[in-house]
Design a protein around this nucleic acid. Sequence first.
RNA 1: AUCCGGCGGAGUGUGUCCC
Length: 372
Amino acid sequence: TYLSNLVIQMYGKCGSVENSKKVFDSIHSKSIYTWGLLLIAYTSNGYITQAIQVFDSMPEHDLFSWTAMLAAYAKSGYLQQAKRTFDQMKERDIVSWNAMLTAYSNYQLLKEAKNTFDMMPEHNIISWSAMLIVYAQSGYLFEARDIFDRMPERDLVSWTVMLVSYSENLKPHEAKFIFDQMPEQDVVSWTAMLAAYTHTGHVEQARHVFDSMRERNLISWTTMLLACTNAGNLDQAQGIFDSMPERDIVSWNALIAAYAERGQLDHAKRLFSSMARWDRVSCTAILRGFAISGAIEEAKVAFDSMQEKDLVAWNSMLLAYARNNYLGEAEAFFLVMPDRDVVSWTVMISAYAINGQPASARRVFDSMPEQD
RNA sequence: AUCCGGCGGAGUGUGUCCC
């Protein structure tokens, strides 16, 4: 059983949840600890349905399983369920409080995050970091900095969070200042610094950071690739891509999107067809390339080929119709969309407005449920 | 034998003056 537990955990960490389950099933006397391992195998690989099943089948729950379930709900987009789980807990420790807090932080619910923070019996470095993030992401950079200054202790992660906060608010110089002050740096903070320059179009500095890194991983390489594409240096980006020691679907998608955005469909298609597999980001990127080139039918093919379409994909297809003056198709498409957000409405309304049909624009505008 | 079941940090796709 000792060994079996280890094996469940090992498979879980490798993403082989089926194997975790097999080993689990082969164990006769399952401890709460064993149940917990299977639960984590599912939650950490995004299998929310199976996680719920395991949770509901467990003979008893401890703090670990409650907290794991709470976090799993939050990560899968079920914030209400996460909250309900939290409320049902008989006892809570700082980890479960933090899980609830970071859930709110991830959903950018500043008020709820702050309430949770204030209600917690104690705080640790993770609680402070979560608050820092939610303030920074809500645009309250000064408050975020204040939290950083008031934190009782800081570690590598808190320093990096502060750096990223400046980066996300497009303040690369402040980010660099933090970077230079950090007691130590690792590949994550280096890459965050690289990203700060990338987002703001400082290719030279990005290049300098990249060249100074003593360790690089996939993410660093992809960020450098983006620094080139953002500056319009697609040849350099391709060069980076070609010299990457390894590539994953994100790096492929990044380069495809860059070609697609500039209407370099031949390059985009060449890459796309060389990929081992596609996800909805790849498909949406190539869709956009078709749309920009006016190849509306091929765009639709790309759209239809997507396994799971999200709102971004739907909006991209809507925009493909709208930008190519297929207004009738656009509205028909708009009406069958399973979901609409402010982007969908904006695209639809401006499609009519740009085409000199203010009455139709107005009609769509007035049919919006909430006019934000 | 420091770590070794639950919480925090970096990369890809959609609209938004003008261009």
